[in-house]
Design a protein around this nucleic acid. Structure first.
Lengths: 120, 120
DNA sequence: CCAATTGTTCAATAACTTTTGAACTAAGGA
DNA sequence: TCCTTAGTTCAAAAGTTATTGAACAATTGG
């Protein structure tokens, strides 16, 4: 019940760049980065597209090695493969995320920052 | 007789990433970077594709703001827009070029390094 | 002027990408 | 067991991208 992911050394630069060169996927990556490693399930990206469409984009990100998806019950918990990407392409992810943050043409990251344990 | 280029502030992150997510164009950018700012004409990229195909890829790079093409006689002298890209997306180009250099799946950059003034 | 060099444009084609809705699977809770 | 929630798969449609060869334009050198 585990989904296929490339090993760190199988992650390909042109594939990663191509995958990040899509506004929807870039928004997903930005959102994941803003959550500082907290895993998100697919439904939390519904602002960025339909359920079917997200399934497609999240599969692309996973197959490229940008994200990791862990099966937990009926959920796929999704995280950025930050350490793996930093090991493979030092500085790349940071500069992409920083650049995306500065670009007013891209949609602002929504949500409630990194308030993980919301108090009632 | 000047070709259209985006201004620095018009350079778009997803477009740049998408354009770099092609092995031919990534090879062109690597090769330009290895030449340290020395302008190259299109014919010097013929290892990476046919003349027609290069015209296509070089136009993509130029329109994305990754390269600059200056018309000099019948030549288009091509340079990387390093300073503009660094200003717009700090660290991005450097990390891409470094990552490309480490990736054994990509073709090695050929040519004669930065020996600009070859002595007879 | 003539020929060679440099690169573009065009049309055709093939291949890939994105998006959609309907149908589906799989786990969890009542 | 039945229903709900979470997400995938499939096929179709639409759009985009890459590649090619033939024809073209523009400059330069003889």
């Amino acid at each position: 019940m585990t989904l296929p992911h490339p090993n760190t050394d199988q992650i390909s630069l042109p594939i990663v760049l191509g995958v990040l060169g899509d506004p929807t996927r870039l928004a997903i990556v930005r959102y994941l980065a803003s959550k500082q490693g907290v895993p998100l399930n697919c439904s939390q990206f519904l602002d960025f597209g339909s359920k079917t469409n997200l399934s497609y984009h999240l599969a692309k990100l996973r197959e490229a090695g940008v994200t990791r998806a862990e099966v937990v019950g009926t959920n796929r918990m999704i995280t950025l493969r930050r350490a793996d990407l930093d090991a493979r392409f030092p500085g790349l992810l940071d500069s992409v995320i920083a650049a995306a943050g500065d670009d007013p043409a891209l949609p602002a990251v929504g949500g409630h920052d990194i308030e993980v344990h919301a108090r009632p």
